[in-house]
Amino acid sequence: MPFTLFGQEKSINVNGTNYHVFLKGFENRSQNTPAIIFENGMGVDLGNWSKIMEQVSSFAPVFAYDRAGIGKTDKIFKMPTAKFVAENLHDILKTLKITPPYILVGHSLGGVYIRSFAGLYPNEISGLVFIDPADFTETKNDWNAIFRTMGIPEKKIDEMLYDRLYRQQSKVDSLHFGPWSERQILNDLRKTDFAEITALPLPKVPIYFFVGGKFEVPLDQRSKDFDHEAFFHIKNNSNMERWKKLIYASGKAGMLLYLTNAGHYIHLDDPKSVINNIKILVESLKE
């Protein structure tokens, strides 16, 4: 049955799963106007975009959804690999008759997922917007280099890397399988230096990065092994150097915006900056 109601949250069945989706602005969509496709962060539902989605829909049609086992979408006991999530999103868009081109907007783990989608369907992409993404360009050596810069002994560095990748494994959480499985997937990608992602082509489209510069880790959650705030700033600088290379590699005009007043959830802390720059991207594609 065709999906004809817009500007509302609905449920749609794709590949045997009921997905909770939100669409707005498609009834007035003109030909070749890009659709804004939002991909949520780890374990987060589409309501996380509430501060920007309505405003963005005033200049471009928007789509958001809950991944399997998150929010109001059915739970499925399949691991949400980057390829699986990208192909599944593609099927959802096809079912809803939301045709390319797409501007993909991904926050945190959503940044990994939109990079995968863009690599699998490069000809369908008009732009990429990464909002403080999980760093899919990072290698284990990049991670260790941060601690070397901080003067941490090599033995301790090796121990911390092992703890990060292997000792934090947890038993299957059937009750919260969606968020649990997404965390496992990110950890698995880190073990391989994101080989599944780096093997994919990069579309020749504008790439925007938003980076949160506000250190937010609560005192009781900070590391006892190193200066956590110093680590945060060194890591941000390291990430941005690689992300700048990614922007240049696309061959198109891009942007990297460092927001000192925003933490990881930049679209909640500084929604105007995100909205205005997505609008700039949309307008630039009309030229």
Rank of each mutant, 00 (worst) to 15 (best):
M1H: 14
V14T: 13
N15H: 01
Y19K: 08
Y19H: 13
A35V: 10
G47S: 12
S50K: 14
I52L: 04
V56P: 01
A60L: 05
D66L: 15
I70H: 03
T81L: 04
V85Y: 00
V85P: 00
V85W: 00
I92C: 06
T95A: 15
T99G: 04
P100L: 08
S108D: 12
G111H: 03
S126N: 11
G127T: 10
F130C: 04
F136M: 14
E138F: 01
D142G: 00
D142H: 12
N144Y: 06
I152S: 03
P153C: 02
D158Q: 13
D158I: 03
D158T: 09
D163Y: 11
H176S: 04
W180D: 12
E182V: 01
R183A: 10
L186P: 00
L189D: 07
L189V: 08
K191V: 05
P201I: 09
L202P: 02
P203D: 05
Y208F: 13
F210Y: 06
G212P: 08
K214Q: 11
D220L: 02
F226T: 08
D227A: 01
K235I: 05
N239W: 10
R242I: 02
Y248G: 01
S250C: 09
N261R: 13
I275Y: 03
N277W: 04
I278L: 06
L281W: 05
E287I: 14
